[in-house]
Amino acid sequence: MTGRGGRGAYRRVPPSVRWWVLLPVVALLLPAGCGVPVDDRPRGVEPPFGPPAAPAASSVPGRVEQAFCLVRDGRLVRTVRQVDAAGGVDGHLRRLLAGPTQAERAAGLGTALPGAVHVLGARLVDGRAHVEVEPLGEESGRSDEVLAYGQIVCTLDSRADVSGVSFLLRGGPLEVPRADGSLSAGPLTAADYPAVTGPD
């Protein structure tokens, strides 16, 4: 086709061809129109503002857990109490000798200690708990010494600072019954009384 006014001939470009030519240009312009800056290299992500998450609090703030071995249905049962302070082996043993709490009694837990073993005290020597006892009279009327000694051994053996428990009578080593009926001067651990169960 020849144009008017002596201008050279030209060819009309079809509309479909025009869109294909413009598409790359539109694709380059879209990111700039979205308001998101384009970086040459990755950027670090800043953490959200605010204090770090606090560790989970204990169930009873200011108190610690302490294990005790009690008796139910002729077996030793380990239970856990919340106490004000863990204290030493003697204090731990005194809590055991005081007997089950009201809640523990309601759960059917008891103790074999009264009348079976008379404890004078306990001390820690080189990682071993030494428990001093005195002989009982002939009229004690108790035959469950295994459970009584097992309660003491398993309670004190639950402590991280105790590697074994020995019993003394008048300052000398005392052989006490294990769960299988044999006598041992120790050091004894919970493994000598396999009737112990987990926390109840």
Rank of each mutant, 00 (worst) to 15 (best):
R4E: 15
R4N: 14
R12K: 14
V13K: 14
S16F: 07
L29F: 02
L30E: 13
L30P: 01
A32M: 08
G33W: 13
V36S: 14
V38E: 15
R43V: 07
R43H: 11
G44W: 10
V45I: 04
E46A: 09
P48I: 03
P51C: 06
P51T: 03
P52N: 11
A53Q: 12
P55E: 13
S59Q: 12
S59T: 10
V60L: 13
V60G: 08
P61W: 13
G62H: 09
F68S: 00
V71D: 06
D73T: 01
G74M: 02
L76R: 07
V80R: 13
Q82N: 10
V89M: 04
D90M: 05
H92A: 15
H92C: 15
H92F: 01
H92I: 03
L93Y: 01
R95N: 12
P100F: 00
P100G: 05
P100Q: 08
T101Y: 01
T101S: 15
Q102N: 11
R105P: 02
A107F: 02
G108L: 00
L109E: 06
G110F: 00
G110P: 03
T111D: 06
T111G: 02
A112M: 02
A116D: 06
H118K: 11
V119C: 01
L120C: 08
D126Q: 12
A129N: 05
A129S: 10
E134A: 13
E134F: 03
E139N: 09
S140M: 05
G141K: 09
R142S: 10
E145C: 04
E145T: 04
Q151W: 01
I152R: 06
R159K: 09
R159A: 14
A160K: 10
A160C: 00
V165H: 08
L169I: 04
G171Q: 08
L174N: 08
E175H: 08
R178N: 07
R178L: 06
A179V: 00
S182C: 03
L183V: 02
P187C: 09
T189E: 12
T189D: 08
A190M: 05
A191D: 13
D192T: 02
P194C: 15
T197S: 15
G198E: 14
